[in-house]
Design a protein around this nucleic acid. Structure first.
Length: 829
RNA sequence: GCCCGGGUGGCGAAACUGGUAAACGCGGCGCCCUUAAAAGGCGCUACCGCAUUGCGGUUCGCGGGUUCGAGUCCCGCCCCGGGCACCA
């Protein structure tokens, strides 16, 4: 008998799958397509190829592949492709440092990823492999851009943007974390630049409504997106400044507090500020304040517990509800990006306005009765943010503030001084990057015609080869002068190309559609293929993409559906967010030196061990700490399965009937059915892989304990073969190579061609059950009883138990509870 | 501050709709195999007490409640992780 040698087994089966193209799946209309089978599209978030795959990739694909295998054997036609998110900053920064073209480094990484993924035995349809940096791919990224451009969903405008001085590029709002660049951690500064945007804000409500159509997304991911979109309902109310003849609309969620407005604040970036103070005594102070704020970073400005600062403008506006003139201020606690960049300040019922009023000695007026004992307030209990009856509010006095809310908005609307309004925190998606390694934006600038889209038949606009990748405040592409100068597609005159490239999130927002028709040179995808396979039934990836990637993809699918290119309204019906694997309790990083190289473990223990381990370490949606002892434990289990297989293959003959067994053999067969039942349930109940695997471990343990008594008996041997084959069948989604090998040895069949096993109901019930006997809820004894014994009999048996009797002695039984098959509880006094 | 997760042995964890807390794995201890070691096989392993098998007590972050019975349901708190945050 030889030991478990994963290398030999794994390469054997990988060769079979490659030679037979086992995991390839045809599109509707292609040969081999089975219209009878339901489809299941299983997709992992495509990896960014940098260096080598890390454990996060291993876990993602171990989980995804288990699901793919499970669905296949449940009778689905499974689409399971993969590709590479190949554009992006790391390769470009490497190019700046070493001079090596990003394409070269990227393709080297892709090669390494491909090799390792193959060595993991993941059941990928490799015929559909793609990489986003290939012109055949980004041609269609550009096409999508043009589609959006034509419908006004892509536009260019000058806007204050977040600029990372180190990477010398703008960042999307979503890429700024705590005022710092998500990528390199440098403090972000504000700049005003002409930039390209996608109008994702047009889809804010659709993105919120779409949650209802999703099948299974983690609640917290939906919440994160909902918060990010940040929809709030309220009213727009116009405050007028007669002195300069200007209207100042504000957005408020509390129109019921309008009577309490005692001052008015503009953001430092407000466009009318100049007009308000030009030539007034306040001009110098205001200008100085605005300059100072402008020099501060987003982080400084947003700091917690920041003192309220501002400057009076020496102007007033009229409160439309009561005609009061209230003073105007400029202050940095008002943000230009949200609402209208101006607010009515109600210090009595808003803590920020209250702080400002305290700092500037402004009046605080109560308009709603009530106190909030929880909240810190002054002697009068202000600021108060709760509900209550209205006071000091003219004809609304006495009404509940919630009722007054609607009445005030209706009244203002009649007067033409306000209306209901909705505001979003979500900003449009800034997609241009002043970088080289991305898909060029297919636009040409002509003196005569302005921004002209590159005609479809001239796509792709290919990236030129350049020498210097370093950014100099503009895209490195600007230096490729031959490439930049072109002719206008409209008038034929001299024109220059857009030198910005697209955010790589654009590339990764639609790849899962391209997988469905990856070699199509005529279109981004075939409608029939897309409509058949979309949406992705199960998407798998890390939570770190909960907002950015997942929201962009949702937006793009909705936009493409509106443009008539897709039927699907959502890209991902179900989402599985895997937890992060740590080492020594800390996030893995090269600088910390605690990284785990999957290749090393695959080399030492085999892919089956590595894959099974990441699925066994805990519930996959939670994180877990990687330990070598844990890996060895799983390897020990797989070896045990292997050795048992060897022994059973040698000592038993195939062909017995496991159903016709009795005694110990039958107990083992029953255990196998129990494992099938447990594994299937836990698989379906949110992919509880750790307990699926533990069920197989229990089966193997049971087989080991019984095997020596079963050899030599035909029923016993049939039971052993059945148990080992069942274990192989159930472990196959996690350890596909060993599962295939063991299953073949036991049955002569290929496990992936077999349907997922089903447990026989009859084998799940036993004739006798262990009954728990409690006295006053405390466990006093366990008794064996026939499963079908009547309640009276169970009670009698319970009372007859010696230990139970001890606790009943001298007491009176006041209540008897019998849960058949479970317990007896006797309540005594 | 607001919104999500989560707190169970020495460790990772398990416990279906309230019904034997700790399955499975790691680690530890013991035994078998072996000249020996490794590998492997078999057992024990929540804590405390008395003790001979055994028996009793305590235990799911803390404090209350509902119930014959609560890790599970309800109320109030504490701690850890994540997201958002001067968003009007």
């Amino acid at each position: 008998m030889s030991g478990y040698e994963p290398k030999a087994i794994e390469s054997k089966w990988q060769e079979v799958w490659a030679a037979e193209r086992t995991w390839e799946v045809p599109n509707p209309g292609q040969p081999g397509f089975d219209a009878e089978k339901p489809k299941a599209y299983v997709c992992e978030m495509l990896p960014y190829p940098s260096g080598e795959p890390h454990v996060g990739h291993l876990k993602c694909y171990a989980v995804g592949d288990a699901i793919a295998h499970f669905r296949r054997r449940q009778g689905f036609q499974v689409m399971h492709p993969m590709g590479y998110d190949a554009f992006g900053l790391p390769a470009e920064n490497n190019a700046i440092k070493t001079g090596e073209p990003p394409r070269v480094a990227t393709e080297r990484s892709i090669e390494s990823f491909r090799r390792q993924f193959r060595s993991w035995g993941v059941s990928i349809d490799w015929s559909r492999e793609l990489a986003t940096h290939q012109p055949e791919y980004y041609r269609w990224t550009q096409w999508i851009f043009l589609q959006l451009f034509e419908r006004g969903l892509a536009y260019r405008t000058e806007a204050p943007v977040q600029w990372c001085p180190k990477d010398a590029t703008v960042l999307a709002n979503e890429q700024v974390i705590d005022g710092r660049c998500e990528r390199c951690g440098t403090e972000v500064i504000q700049k005003k630049l002409e930039q390209w945007f996608f109008k994702i804000t047009d889809y804010a409500d659709r993105l919120l409504e779409g949650f209802g159509a999703l099948e299974s997304w983690p609640e917290h991911v939906i919440t994160m997106q909902r918060n990010w979109i940040g929809r709030s309902e309220g009213a727009e109310v116009v405050f007028r400044c007669d002195e300069v003849d200007l209207d100042f609309p504000v957005f408020t969620t509390r129109p019921d507090t309008l009577f309490g407005a005692t001052f008015f604040v503009l953001a430092p970036e407000h466009p009318q500020l100049e007009k308000l103070v030009a030539g007034t005594p306040a001009e110098a102070a205001v200008r100085e304040y605005v300059d100072r704020v402008g020099r501060e970073s987003a982080e400084e400005r947003g700091a917690e517990d920041r003192e309220k600062t501002g400057v009076a403008l020496g102007r007033t506006v009229v409160n439309p509800v009561n005609g009061e003139e209230i003073p105007m201020y400029v202050a940095d606690y008002v943000l230009m990006e949200y609402g209208t960049g101006a607010i009515m300040a109600v210090p009595g019922h808003d803590s920020r306005d209250y702080d400002f009023a305290q700092a500037f000695d402004l009046p605080v007026k109560r308009v709603i009765e009530g106190t909030d004992p929880e909240a810190p307030g002054d002697a009068a209990g202000l600021p108060y943010t709760g509900d209550g009856p209205m006071v000091n509010s003219g004809r609304f006095d006495g009404q509940g503030n919630r009722d007054a809310y609607d009445a005030i908005v209706a009244w203002l609307a009649e007067e033409g001084r306000g209306k209901t309004a909705v505001n979003y925190r979500l900003r449009d998606w800034l997609l241009s990057r002043q970088r080289y390694w991305g898909a060029p934006i297919p636009i040409v600038y002509c003196e005569e015609c302005g921004a002209v889209p590159v005609p479809e038949d001239q796509l792709p606009v290919e990236l030129p080869e350049i020498e210097d990748y370093a950014p100099h405040g503009q895209s490195p592409l600007a230096a490729a002068t031959d490439w930049v100068s072109t002719e206008c597609p409209k008038c034929g005159g001299a024109a220059r190309r857009e030198t910005d490239t697209m955010d790589t999130f654009v590339d990764s927002s639609w790849y899962y559609i391209r997988y469905l028709d990856p070699r199509n040179a005529e279109a981004a995808w075939d409608r029939g293929a897309a409509n058949h396979w979309m949406p992705v039934d199960q998407y798998i990836g890390g939570v770190e993409h909960a907002i950015l990637h997942l929201m962009y993809a949702r937006f793009l699918v909705k936009a493409l559906a509106d443009l008539g290119h897709l039927e699907a309204q959502e890209p991902f019906a179900s989402l599985f967010a895997q937890g992060m694997i740590t080492r020594d309790g800390a996030k893995m990083s090269k600088s910390r030196g605690n990284t785990v190289s999957p290749a090393e473990y695959v080399e030492r223990y085999g892919a089956d061990t590595a894959r099974t381990y990441v699925c066994f370490m805990g519930p996959p949606e939670r994180g877990g700490d990687w330990t070598d002892e844990g890996v060895e434990g799983v390897n020990r289990f797989l070896s045990r399965l292997w050795r048992l297989c060897e022994e059973v293959a040698e000592r038993t003959a195939p062909g017995g009937d496991p159903a016709a067994t009795e005694g110990d053999a039958r107990t083992l067969v029953a255990k196998a059915h129990w494992s099938i039942d447990k594994a299937t349930h836990d698989f379906e109940r949110g992919f509880q892989f750790n307990t699926v695997i533990s069920a197989v471990m229990e089966l193997i343990n049971d087989a080991y304990r019984r095997k020596d008594g079963l050899y030599g008996d035909p029923g016993g041997e049939a039971a052993l073969r059945f148990a080992v084959a069942t274990a192989a069948s159930l472990i196959f989604p996690f350890a596909p190579h060993l599962g295939s090998e063991v299953y073949e040895r036991m049955t002569g069949e290929r496990v992936w061609e077999q349907p997922w096993p089903t447990a026989e109901e009859a084998m799940l019930v036993s004739d006798t059950v262990t009954l728990v006997v409690q006295v006053n809820g405390k466990l006093r004894a366990r008794i064996e009883a026939p499963a079908d014994a009547p309640q009276g009999e169970l009670l009698a048996a319970a009372k007859a138990n010696e230990n139970v009797a001890k606790f009943l002695d001298g007491k009176q039984v006041v209540k008897e509870i019998v849960v058949p098959g479970k317990l007896v509880n006797l309540v005594v006094k």
